[in-house]
Computed example of a mutant assay.
Amino acid sequence: MKHITVSILLLALAGCGGSSEGESVNSSVPDNSSGTVDSGSEFNPGGMPSNPSEVSFAKKNEINVDAFENYFTINLEKDSKVYISALLELGMKTLDKTRCRSSTVEESGFITVDSTGVACDHRVVLDLKAGQHSINFEYPRSNYGYFTIDTVANNQRTILTENGVGGLPSTPRKISFTENNEINRDLNNNYFAYEGKAGDKLFLNSYLQESIPVLMLTRCRSGAGENSSAIGFSINEGPYSCTENIEYELPEDGSYLFHVFYMAPSDVTYPVPGYFRADVQYAQ
């Protein structure tokens, strides 16, 4: 499978300085309004190859059993990092993912962009140039569900005030120290931010609806938290923790972007929801 400037399961650093809800980091917000679809159905259906549907940033984009109806387009006004997260009703067999990754055919992949395979998994983050791009989904075993999508241009994000729920890549939400922070099944909705000073120490503990098999954590560690089996917490484009809990001391003043997600079990994987609690020991 050929990759086109793809960064799978990695994050972009949040802009410096925290902000209140609605206030933009670096006085800019990502331009993703062009894909908004009028209210009505909960889902935005795909189209056919000759008449693809424009992706929606406001609705769930439908992944049909018939891949012939899973064609979408996205129009970017600027070079952007694009985040795609698929939620599948049947989960995904580890064997199917392995076979997909071992393919040498350029078009292979459960997610293809501009006719090139970019992902054999639930999620992908990739860098795309300004302009129109095609996106197609074809999962094996008649799988179906939906995907969400978000974009970040020029690494500019809006940090939202805390309320215990995660944000999107373009709008991460401040970590709450008084409420539980939700871990969503939609991996695009698990972005959090913290602004602090060098020496601040964060303690994050996850509480999940299902136990994570030791095998999943072992696979993650074998790839140093950076391969397709990565799970846990990631900070500022770093590797995932491969653990359910982390302690992290800020090396310098600034804003830090956190992403968290877990997959289980080991043979047929799907996102595991839950929440994490947070505490902070401020630098003296």
Score class of each variant (00 low, 15 high):
G40D: 15
F147W: 03
D121Y: 08
Y139R: 00
K60H: 04
I74L: 14
C100V: 03
L95P: 10
N64I: 07
S53Q: 13
D150E: 10
S34C: 11
R101K: 15
V152L: 09
S134G: 00
F147R: 00
V165A: 15
N70W: 00
E106R: 05
L126D: 00
K59I: 05
E77I: 12
V55E: 03
N44Y: 03
T161K: 07
S56H: 06
L76D: 03
K129V: 00
D121L: 08
D114F: 09
T148N: 14
G47P: 02
V124G: 00
H122G: 00
L160K: 02
I63D: 06
A130L: 07
G145I: 01
T171Y: 13
S142W: 11
T73M: 13
L160G: 02
E107C: 01
S134D: 00
K174G: 11
G117M: 10
R123G: 06
S142C: 07
V65F: 05
D96R: 15
F137V: 02
N136E: 11
G167W: 14
Y144C: 11
G117A: 12
T148W: 11
N75P: 06
F43T: 06
F72N: 04
L160N: 01
Y139W: 03
S39W: 14
L76A: 05
D96T: 08
L168N: 09
D127I: 12
T94Q: 05
C100G: 03
